[in-house]
Amino acid sequence: MRQTRPALLLIAPSIIFMAALFLWPLIAGVTQAFHGPDGPTTQYVRRMADDPYFWEALRNTALLIVVLIPLQFALAIVMALLMRERPRFAGLHFYIWVVPLAISDLAAGLVWLSIFTDRGYLNSVLDGLGIPTYSWLSFEHPQTMFLAVVVAELWRATSLVFVIVIAGLQGVPRDYDEAASVFGATYWQRVRHVILPQLRPSLQVALILRTILALEAFAVAQALTGRNFPLLVGETYQWYYQLQNPNVATAIALVVLALSIVAAVGYLRLMRP
């Protein structure tokens, strides 16, 4: 027990840090969402639930996660496996694939907007080829609107998964590959029986990170579609700035927090060795 005091001293900075930047805002948030001028209340939560945009945002966010994440992981793993074969100009490929990581998501959204918008690059190319143009981002075409958001997010956020998978792959000794191939494994068998199981910890980290970040997706969709394709965090923004109602905004933010926690715990349990 002699050790308690120095131990406390040592972890004090991180306790203070966590309390100031996480615990206090959390308490403040919960208070804001459940406490009205006349004491505890559920009116903000009810107001949130009565808003049709909320349910659409929830559905869109879920849809985005379900479609986006498997695609991103498939792409990132394939890209990382390609890099593992040490292609020519591997360094250059790596930089190109990692560039999106350095670009802010709003900027990325604007770039893709310039491609998909009615008089954007895509339609110019189509027009030049004599193919009729299309209003990709019109609210009348929810499918292509969704597609545009998926493509933009895929471009923007796959590199994060890619970087994590690359780091994980570097921890897999080449001996394992060689042993597996001597013992008769095809490339696919090597990936399935040797490489992927070794990557499990990295994939787990990437999956948690990506899911949480996808729950928070906002700027790209906002830039491309405005409120035509509402997402949860976009709604928080709407309620806070457009509708000037921080209480409902906080309630939605708490929903995002709850979903993030459920996702993280779920992955950790699911992928336990």
Binding site: P173, D175, Y176, E178, A179, A180, S181, V182, F183, G184, A185, T186, H193, V194, P197, Q198, R200, P273
Partner: peptide, 29 residues
């Protein structure tokens, strides 16, 4: 390629797979 040569090999680093139990390791080939 190595897998079509009908060989087996013992590596200096052993290269036994850490995620597999001894049974699966021995039975890998």
């Amino acid at each position: 390629p190595a897998r079509e040569r009908g060989l087996s090999m013992v590596f200096q680093s052993y290269a036994i797979f850490p995620h597999l139990k001894v049974r699966q390791n021995i039975g890998f080939g």
